[in-house]
Design a protein around this nucleic acid. Structure first.
Length: 276
DNA sequence: AGCTCATGGCGAG
DNA sequence: TCGCCCTGAGCTG
């Protein structure tokens, strides 16, 4: 679930459901109970996302700061709410809607200073209109680190997770282990604009779909696929299956403790490109 | 009932 | 680089 598009969607659905009206704030599971009591019954001022961070603003420049981590989820549903199911860390509710947060790595009540500090530490977010891709390029273009690493580094570029990383690299035929400095600026710009488009689509659909129409299984005369994560993708979690473009088996590996997927033919290494 | 895994990120060594 | 935190689903036995 949680890459930048999920948080962006959440910010708007939470705003739609709760902004401008008093909201009941509770913590059925208990861990957020003390902080919940401090804002319980106050109106939500606004909700906002930046990268994978979510902020729900309350009067007096107080913010509930949420980071879903790997397994967190925040479900916004029409109300009224029933008894909480499972470990609900935070529940927001009014007469018409409720939202349950589970499994988040972070859920804290923070000041505007902390809010600003978190935002200040993030690289540009493709989903924010004010983002400047050249800020990310300033680091990528002189780094020896693999581009696959840099794209997931939230200080370099915010909101991209493992799926968007794998897919944008595939779409631009870039091997994940290529050092950032071996990319050309035009290549990075193209990847950035692609992320802007893909992630905005993700915000609208709530899924990650990256396969161009001409490469869908239907267009290629193959049986339709079912992806566990709910979107159509080229390489993410498709290890051992044929590449949708060239038929080569999709490869997998690990980079900084995270799963990596790529097509060795469509995404040649820098060295073999130079030789070829 | 108990394991393993997941679209993250942190701190210890 | 490793272990750990958060939770639930999907296995295995």
């Amino acid at each position: 679930m949680p890459e930048g598009h999920t948080l962006h969607r959440l910010a708007s659905s939470l705003g739609d459901a709760f902004a401008g009206r008093p909201v009941r704030v509770s913590s059925p599971q208990g861990r957020f109970a003390a902080d919940a009591a401090l804002v319980d019954g106050h109106p939500v001022v606004a909700s906002e996302s930046a990268g994978k961070h979510l902020f729900i603003e309350f009067p007096g420049e107080r913010f509930i700061h949420v980071h879903l981590g790997l397994i967190g989820r925040f479900d916004v549903r029409p109300g009224p709410a029933g008894a909480p199911v499972g470990e609900v860390r935070l529940r927001l509710q009014n007469e018409t809607a409720y939202a349950d947060l589970r499994g988040a790595t972070q859920c804290d009540l923070v000041s505007v200073e902390r809010h600003d500090q978190i935002l200040g530490a993030l690289g540009p977010d493709p989903l924010r209109a004010d983002a400047d891709p050249m800020v990310a390029w300033a680091r990528i273009g002189r780094s020896n680190r693999p581009i696959g690493d840099l794209l997931m580094d939230q200080k370099v570029l915010a909101g991209v997770g493992n799926i968007y990383r794998a897919e944008v690299l595939f779409r631009h035929r870039v091997h994940p282990l290529r050092p950032g400095k071996t990319l050309r600026v035009g290549q990075f710009r193209a990847m950035w604009h692609d992320l802007v488009m893909l992630m905005h689509e993700g915000v609208l659909s709530g899924r990650i779909d990256t396969v161009r129409p001409e490469h869908t299984p239907e267009a290629m005369g193959r049986p339709p696929r079912v992806d566990g994560h709910g979107g159509e993708v080229y390489v993410y979690r498709r290890a051992g299956q044929p590449c949708l473009v060239c038929g080569t088996k999709v490869r997998t590996g690990e980079l900084s403790g995270r799963n990596l997927f790529w097509c060795s033919r469509c995404q040649p290494t820098f060295r073999s490109r130079a030789v070829r």
